[in-house]
């Protein structure tokens, strides 16, 4: 027995849409322009999209994933299946991947991850502009080490205008003349080949987790950083800092200690973040801020010099 859904008031439609899964919402959006508007007005659960520039889009929430994949066979449109790879999979007409992605943005208003992997510079710059114009929240940006997208370095100033909330990851090596300044920081940054991220940027960084690989930061830079960190009120968000780079050496001191910096006393101490347990340090040295906050620092040299710093009390002392 059919019912005239669109005769329901908008708030009631929202209640119903919140009980619909992404497959239902997607198919409903394909019914008419009016259903698309109703979905936008009524609202849905906060499903989040992941897109890599190819003909696959995932809508996720609380560990549930709904995978949309392209097919050219009209007989397979809107077919759902569970297979060895996906619990929930629907084949849909795809066409131009970016246009499909824009269509999805009309239904789902949060992008969990935009992976700059496949597609052209022009397509990604258009997509980013679209995200900015529609005030879409982006949780994570991922730029892998070998994206198929050319001129990714030229995308960085445009990416800067996005509202990235959770994490910005860039593994790509940019040309040596590349320079970039973040306008606003997400909670976390992971930058490989981070020669362009200098001490001025680190001193202004508001992230809670900072991971810089192939960094140019030196002992003097890190000394400057820790002098600032020790001041009350500075770096209030910072929980984890990891710097790996050849300029960390034993030629000058950090906080009046010549690296390596580690605790050689027994019993041994291991400190780890409660949420990110892999962010841990064995045998760190305790340093204290003027306001009493404790931080744990370890600097190792050798083939891959690295500095690890965790702002937390030890949770698992090893004896």
């Amino acid at each position: 027995m059919p019912i005239a859904l669109l005769k329901f008031p908008t708030d009631l439609l929202g209640d119903i849409f919140k009980l619909c899964d992404p497959f239902q919402l997607y198919c409903l959006s394909k019914c008419s322009k009016r259903t698309q508007r109703s979905i936008q007005l009524g609202g849905t659960k906060k499903w989040k999209l992941s897109f890599r520039g190819r003909n696959a889009i995932v809508a996720s929430l609380d560990g549930l994933h709904y995978n949309f994949g392209g097919t050219e066979d009209p007989d397979e449109y809107f077919e759902t299946q569970k297979n060895w790879r996906f619990d929930n999979y629907m084949t849909i007409p795809f066409g131009e991947p970016f246009d499909v992605f824009f269509g999805f943005l009309g239904i789902f208003r949060i992008v969990e991850e935009l992976d700059v992997a496949f597609g052209s510079f022009e397509q990604f710059s258009k997509a980013i502009r679209e995200l900015i114009d529609r005030h879409i929240e982006i949780e994570r940006i991922w730029i892998g080490c070998t994206p198929k997208v050319e001129k990714v370095d030229k995308l960085m100033p445009i990416l800067n205008q996005l509202n990235i909330t959770q994490k910005f990851s860039c593994l790509k090596k940019f040309p040596s003349e590349f320079r970039h300044q973040f306008d606003k920081y997400p909670n976390r940054i992971l930058l490989h080949h981070s020669f362009w991220f200098n001490i001025s940027q680190l001193l202004e960084c508001t992230c809670d987790r900072i991971d810089l690989r192939e960094s140019i930061l030196s002992n003097q830079d890190m000394d400057m950083f820790f002098q600032k960190w020790k001041r009350p009120g500075s770096f209030p968000n910072l929980r984890w800092l990891h710097i790996a780079g050849e300029n960390i050496d034993d030629k000058s001191s950090i906080l009046e200690i010549i690296p390596p910096i580690l605790n050689v006393n027994n019993p041994r101490v291991e400190v780890a973040d409660r949420l990110y347990k892999h962010d841990n340090i064995v045998d760190p040295v305790r340093i204290t801020k003027a306001d009493g906050t404790e931080g744990w620092l370890k600097v190792e040299l050798g083939s891959w010099p690295e500095l690890k710093f965790l702002v937390l009390n030890p949770i698992a002392p090893n004896t």
């Binding site: 019912i3 005239a4 859904l5 669109l6 009980l19 899964d21 239902q24 198919c27 019914c31």
Partner: peptide, 23 residues
């Protein structure tokens, strides 16, 4: 609302249009 939503579980846009009387 759950019952209404379940009416279109696994349905194509064409079927949804019929079930929910969408012009």
């Amino acid at each position: 609302c759950k019952q209404v939503a379940m009416m279109v579980k696994g349905k194509s846009p064409e079927e949804i249009r019929e079930i929910w009387m969408i012009p």
